[in-house]
Structures are given as C-alpha cells and as structure tokens.
Amino acid sequence: MSGGTIHLPGGQEVSRFDRYMLSQLMMLFGFFALVLVSVYWVNRAVILFDRLIADGQPISTFVEFTILSLPAVIKLILPIASFAAATYVTNRLSSESELVVMQSTGFSPWRLARPVAIFGLVVGAMMAALSLLLVPLSQTELNQRERQIAETATARLLTEGTFMQPAKGVVFYIREIDGKGILKDVFLSDQSKPDTTVTYTADEAFLIKDEAGPKLIMIDGLAQVVTRNDNRLFTTNFADFTYDISSLLAATSSTKKSLERTPTLELLRAPKEIAATLGLPDGWVAAELHGRIVQIFMCGIAALVGFATLLMGGFSRFGVWQNIVYAFALLIVLEGVRSALVDPVRKDAELWPAMYLAPALGGLLVILILFSKTRSFSRRRVSTP
C-alpha cells in the first residue's frame, strides 16, 4: 500500500492507504449526511407544507422554501455525519484487521490518524462555506420571500363586506374599498390580551409598506378600550392611528434571526454598529461570529474524537461498540461545553476566547489518546524479538 502516492501542498504525500481510507470516509459521510438531512427535512417539510398550502401558496413556493432552508439543515448535521463516518469506518477497519495489518507494517497511531485529519479538513471546508457564507445568504433570501408572502396575505385582508379573523382574538371588517384603494368604514376588534379588549372604528383607512412589516393607517376614528378586571370603558377619538398588521401575520422576525442573517464580513467589520442597529449587547454579535468559526473546528474534532476513542480500545475482530458509546458521550460533552459558553459571551463580549474551549478540549483529548497509543505501540515494538 506504500506505492502510488500523490502530493499535497507543502510536499506531503497521500499514500494508497490514505486514499483508500479517505474514500471510505467520504462515501460513508455522504451516506450519513443524506440520511440525516432527509430525516430532519421531512419533519420540517410537513410543517412547512401545511403552513404554505393553507395560506394558498403554490407548490413552487414550497419547493423554493425547501431549497432555501437546506443550507441551515446541512450545517446542523455535518458534525454528526463526520463523527458517524469516522467511527463506522474505524470500527470496520478494526473488525476486519486492516488497521492491525497497517500497524504491523510500522504505521504509528499518528500516521493512521492522518487520513482522518485530512477528512476533517475537507468537512471543515464544507462547514466554512455553509456557516460563513451560504447560510446567512439563504436565510436573508428566505426572509425576503416570507415578507412577500406576508404582503400577499395582507392583500387577502382587503375583502369588502366580510368579517375576517386573521389571528386569534382579532376580527377585521371593511365595508367598501374605493377606486383609489382607500378603505371605508373599518372595524377592528383586538381581544388578543386576556384582560383588555380594544375596538377601533374609522371612517377611512389605507395600508402602507414598512421595513418592519405592513401597517394599517386609520383616519378619523374611535378607539374603545374595555378592561375586564373592573369592567371600565375608555374611549379616545383620533385623527390618525397606526396599527401593525404584521403582528397578525407572524411576518416579523426576531432580532436573533436578524443577527443570524447578517453576513460574516459585516460581523467582522462593524460589530458595534450591528449591535446598536439590532438593539443587542455587543456580546451577542461576538457570540454569533465566533460561533460560526467554532462550528468549522467542531467538524474535524468530531471525526478525530471518534477515530481516537475507537483506537484507544485496541483492535478486536468483534468490534469496538463500547468505545463508540464512549466516543458519542465525549462528543455530547464537548457540544455541551460549546453551548454552555454562549450565554457568558453574550453577556460579556471580552470573553469570546472561551468560545474555542470546546474544540481546544477535543483537540487536546485526541492528542493525549494518540500519544498514549504511540507509547504503548513503541513498547510493543521494542519487546518484539
């Protein structure tokens, strides 16, 4: 297996064994990624399909939303797929004694880990493209399409002579719409709050578009507020009043979603300006930026942790399933550490280096395991006559 080499940048060679193991890792990675994406997508697609079709949207809109949501789904499953591929391939090579053969030819644990490290770099590059570029772009486009659909839904509110209930506790009525688009004799009852009922009546009204969502401007009207605790009625005449229609259509997005859609370069160049615009502490921007980078490292770490943990248990023709459980537990611990450090960084942006603790711990763990296996491997070679 030592013949037929190809060269990496820097003069390193990829031997036939490296190519063989890499091909196995990539094939299993593709299989696990496809299965996990399919399972996750089906669960989301059912909800998405019901919502869009119920709103009267065509199938093409459902397909478009599905495509735009795929990058975020793939980003979630890449570390799991890389871990599953590494553990499966290592277990199979171990049970078929292929790793034992390579050790007998002089391959150290570090040398055996090289194709896994290259595999981790490849998956990390995929994650970098998704996390730093494709996911923010797709989420931005998805948000724009949601706004367009919200505007379409708003247009369906403009029905003359019909009482409509666009949201729970809200009743809307228009007597007439003239040729200029002015709404005549508008009635709006809002009982969404449990202790208060607000009723608006206006002689005229019209809809306007706003960055935050569509608004209903009512002219020459009356607002009646009934408090249910004491059954008191308050009335207010107004010359004009603005009502946020987007709240009825669930079209507005949270500041957290807006932060997730922000391009990575903007997070790097103007973190304070973005935080001020979204009304968030600086730590939220720091946590989002460094969280995207940490996800890149976690893909490679997940693969190496799976490989090293199985290597730690030695080689057996009966498999190393117990070590697979240990490897999965270690991955959960590392992911728990990564998640636990997000809130402290959000509170204090100066703590952003703590975001890299999880991949650092994972890398240190891999180094310790491989170093331990190298020492035991060297002792066995010395004791062999």
Rank of each mutant, 00 (worst) to 15 (best):
G3F: 11
G11C: 10
G11W: 08
E13P: 02
S15D: 04
R16H: 11
M21H: 01
F31T: 03
L36H: 12
Y40F: 14
F49G: 11
R51G: 05
I53G: 01
G56E: 06
G56F: 04
Q57H: 08
F62V: 11
F62K: 02
S69D: 12
S97R: 08
V101Y: 05
M102H: 08
S104H: 07
P109V: 09
A113S: 15
P115Y: 09
P115G: 03
V123M: 06
G124L: 02
G124P: 02
S138N: 08
Q139M: 15
T152S: 10
A155I: 05
F163D: 02
F163N: 02
V170N: 02
Y173E: 05
I177Q: 01
I177M: 08
G181C: 06
L183A: 00
K184M: 09
S189Y: 01
D190H: 07
Q191L: 12
K193Y: 07
T197W: 06
T197R: 15
V198L: 13
T201S: 06
L207N: 00
K215Y: 06
I219N: 10
A223Q: 15
T227L: 11
N231L: 13
N231R: 10
T235G: 05
T235C: 00
T236G: 02
T242D: 03
I245G: 00
L248A: 00
A251L: 02
T252R: 14
P263C: 03
E266F: 05
E266C: 00
R269G: 07
A270N: 15
I274Y: 07
A275S: 12
G279S: 06
P281G: 07
Q295K: 10
G300N: 08
G306H: 03
M312F: 12
F315L: 13
F315P: 00
G319D: 09
N323D: 11
I332F: 11
E335Q: 13
R338L: 03
A349F: 11
P353R: 03
A354C: 10
Y356W: 07
L357W: 07
P359T: 06
A360K: 05
K373V: 09
R375K: 13
R380G: 13
T384L: 14
